[in-house]
């Protein structure tokens, strides 16, 4: 996105470019669709991409796009201003000209501004209200009181299983909106360090109270929310505080039993596989999972997987044949006698 300092309309027109977003395409509607059709399209997409109900990976980003498009197209003033821009390709940089540009550019504070910000500012001018703070991550409520709570910030942190187990200090680089002296909005980077306590689990949302955006008027600051994602571990799979470890064993270990060594997050332990072990059986190592917040820890489950060698020596083949001849074990006994059909 082009950056500029504020200036007069004629100066800025030559220099500022804003990336065009095709809001009609985002909602999948024609440009001449009725307000009702736009609302229906929005509802359908909101249901599909709402981050609270969607399981699609990029749901949150999609929902944001859909929400932004609807915010503009459902507001008659903003829709009219947007329609005046004409057709462009999504992502194409354009320079608004004439009245449209002049109305907005003169307000200044255009660093890091996007189309939605411009349209919102235009809508506010048309509605006779002053340009206020940053968009509060969704629809702004009309007639907001002077004292308003600050915006909540959200960040995502992907951490290793080991870090989740011992806790870590996260360095977050937050992109936050900042209101400039002349009433404009710009995005600035803010470094924040957060001490993540041990015992966090995948999908957990941490809250740091009062570390979001500053409040408006007498309003309190918003909060900072951090979504925790655990990286895939080469050995362990985490489910809540429990860990699962795939434990391959040989056919003879399964039959005869064995004492085997297993890795855990805090060193190796020896465990006994009982004779006659089956694939899928779980060995539970109590308290060897991820630590919990207060006391204790989840469990570690070693899941036995019976593996057979694919390459065997002549000697091994000979022994297997000998075993086959000597054994009376018949795992398919329940299949006999075969059912007969009259």
């Amino acid at each position: 996105m082009a950056k500029t300092t504020s200036g007069s309309a004629s100066q800025v027109d030559d220099r500022v470019a804003v990336k065009y977003t095709d809001y009609y395409a985002t909602l999948g509607v024609e440009r001449d669709s009725s307000a009702e059709d736009i609302r229906k399209a929005y509802r359908r997409l909101a249901r599909r991409y709402h981050p609270d109900i969607s399981s699609e990976d990029d749901a949150e980003a999609k929902f944001k796009e859909v929400n932004e498009a609807y915010q503009v197209l459902s507001d008659p003033e903003q829709k009219e201003a947007y329609d005046q821009l004409g057709r462009h390709r999504s992502g194409e940089e354009f320079r608004p000209s004439g009245d449209w540009g002049g109305q907005v550019w003169q307000e200044g504070g255009l660093e890091d501004i996007d189309l939605a910000d411009l349209l919102e500012r235009l809508g506010q001018r048309a509605a006779g209200s002053p340009a206020s703070g940053p968009r509060a991550g969704g629809r702004r409520r009309a007639g907001a009181p002077f004292a308003m709570r600050g915006q909540d910030y959200q960040a995502t942190a992907t951490i290793s299983l080991e870090d989740a187990a011992r806790g870590l200090e996260l360095s977050l680089d937050l992109s936050v909106p900042e209101t400039t002296a002349d009433g404009g909005v710009r995005t600035v980077s803010r470094a924040t360090k957060v001490r993540v306590p041990r015992g966090v689990v995948d999908g957990e949302r941490l809250r740091v109270a009062g570390r979001g955006g500053p409040g408006y008027g007498e309003g309190p600051a918003g909060d900072l929310y951090i979504d925790i994602h655990l990286q895939q571990h080469p050995l362990f799979r985490a489910v809540g505080h429990d860990l699962y470890l795939e434990v391959p064993i040989t056919p003879w270990e399964a039959v005869l039993g064995a004492e085997i060594e297993l890795p855990t997050l805090d060193g190796r332990v020896r465990v006994a596989v009982k004779p006659g072990a089956k694939g899928g059986q779980k060995l539970r190592l109590a308290g060897k999972g991820l630590p919990r917040r207060g006391e204790g820890a989840g469990d570690l489950y070693g899941v036995l997987q019976l593996v057979t060698p694919t390459v065997i020596s002549d000697k091994e083949r000979e022994l297997y044949r000998e075993l086959a001849a000597a054994s009376s074990f018949d795992p398919r006994a329940p299949f006999t006698p075969l059912p007969t059909h009259a």
């Binding site: 803010r190 924040t192 360090k193 001490r195 993540v196 306590p197």
Partner: peptide, 12 residues
């Protein structure tokens, strides 16, 4: 300052 090490809410 932003470089404080903050503690998130836990079992509060």
């Amino acid at each position: 300052p932003d470089d404080l090490t903050l503690l998130p809410d836990r079992e509060d």
